[in-house]
Amino acid sequence: MDTVISFIIRLVISTFSMATPLFITAVGGIFSERAGVINIALEGMMLIGAFFGVVGAFYTKSAWLGLLLAVVAAGLFSIIHAVICVKYHSNQVVSGVALNMLASGLTVFLLDVMFGVKGTSENVVTIPNMNAIFGVERAATGSNFLYNVLDFSPVILIGIALVFAANVLLFKTVFGLRLRAVGEHAKAADTLGISVSKMRYYGVIISGLLAGLAGAYLSLCLTGAFRKDMSAGRGFIAIAAMITGKWNPIGAFVASVVFGLAQALEFCFDEPVLLGVKIPNQFIQMLPYVLTLVVLAGFIGKSVSPLDLGKPYAKEEKL
């Protein structure tokens, strides 16, 4: 019985540790896309967050300050995307591709220049888990129930809180209404006196801040060091979660947890077995992507993007 319980605890915690970077980033993506700006640069923004998290933690010796620097850095990085897409009305996908490329090159470049290493940074201080924060020690004997239950990162709680905060912000406040209006019908919103470009800037920058947080979670909670291209497609899984969750924070959260569970199964079992057949890990890895295509095609509830997504909005010239 004890082993079953401890196994379930382990599974739940690893599910959420895998899902957290996904749903934090996905919620960020929702802000950007609800405002009408396609953001496939989430991957790059995560990478920037992961890198500057390590930089901050390295120089300040504090993981929390590293987290802060990561959020700020990724926020600044996202401004590039915002300016190019909103001010210069460029193709948002092209800008996203370039941003991903820039992030991948820049982080490794800076890693080499700042730390003089290739590929992997030095280990830095990490954000302590909840058990360390509450001072729960691992007992030498007997049940470690409390220790095991609290063996997760506080960022997971922050992330879950952010999901619900985002839901309120998007659907219960004037700001959220305006943000969504700009993404659904920019011209109508503009006619009503909402500044389209301002709302789109907000949307993209919020997505950058959140992706930075998720990236810092990867480097400061999961690994404790920066590795080249360490986001490893999570930005795109976050996009998958966002679409599967129908551009809705709660939906994206649920989708992320499902994807996280799939990844956690990979950890907890060497080879998961379903109905007596071994499932290769590669099939678990591609689950989010396949599920997204299925959802997009409308086989499981149709997912419809905001109407003005990807359309640059130029105010008409004054005559």
């Binding site: 190019i84 092209v94 800008s95 370039a98 820039l102 991948s104 090159g105 290739k118």
Partner: peptide, 18 residues
Amino acid sequence: PVELVVIVQAVIIFFIAA
């Protein structure tokens, strides 16, 4: 670092896009 090339590539795309 050779990643400078990747950065150059990204900047080229930025200016083409914008």
